[in-house]
Amino acid sequence: MKKSVFLGALTVAGIAAGGVFAGTLDDVKARGKLNCGVTTGVAGFAVPDANGEWDGFDVGVCRAVAAAVFGDPTAVEFVPTTGKTRFTALASGEIDMLARNTTWTFSRDVDLKFDFVGVNYYDGQGFMVPTALGVTSAKELDGATVCIQTGTTTELNLADFFRANGISYEPVPIETNAEGQQQYLAGACDTYTTDASGLAATRATFESPDDHVLLPEIISKEPLGPLVRHGDNEWGDIVRWSLNALISAEELGVTSANIGEMSAGTNNPEINRLLGTEGNLGEMLGLSADWAKNAIAAGGNYAELFERNIGENTPIGLSRGLNAQWTDGGLLYSPPFR
């Protein structure tokens, strides 16, 4: 009894010691670098090139935050994480923020004690089938073999969808997207299901992409966004508003090309507040006045990041869809800079 109490106390002490941090912003500033958790490689979102330089849509968010804090988008240490190590890395303080296409769910936000600061990509689970199969809707997939990544939310969504529609399927479990790609091409399954962005990226690499179609049904909500540890709201605010700055910049027409001109002062007071020529928003965050200007200049506004990494002119070729500004019928809606 005594021993178990002692062990329990030790555990609690250990967790408490691991969970309590002085302000993350101070730590980051003292270190001179932002430690940003990314994937070990997902096309368009975080990819190291031949020189070890990281690039991608999620990487762009990390760089924007680094630019907001230091004025230098290269002051980032990218820490590759896998699906299994990402949450511990964040909880233990090994990384300051995680931008690793992670779905915002209730339990991750509440139970795992993280704060999702926003959504940088609205995804959803879709299906890819060979055109030759002649299927036009996911509801016609009764009895199909389905390649599905184990241990992900997609696996649960799939079961929900087929049960709700009263049809059956046979799962072919796979471990990684790369394996899924091979299995699907080898004909081990009739259809491959994962996030629609991933399907589009996968299909783009096929030798003959036209032989495969994405079915219209999107069966789940997968809001992907950066997250930080629970309990350090000042740091959470910095990451949240850096992301919002990118989104607002698109809405307000501020791009990396015209930002120099705009930051000289404009007639639009919101742009002026965003870029720090009016008001003291930067000071409120504990950053310099031109924090948002630096964040936007790092890789451009949201639209520029999107188009350069995953947009329609890239091999991945995603359209904006849900990820358009609210003014264009999408879901991107940044609270005002005031």
Binding site: G41, P48, A201, T202, A204, P315
Partner: peptide, 9 residues
């Protein structure tokens, strides 16, 4: 990482 590169995916 290499296979995620859009050139080599």
């Amino acid at each position: 990482g290499i296979r995620a590169d859009s050139n080599w995916n």
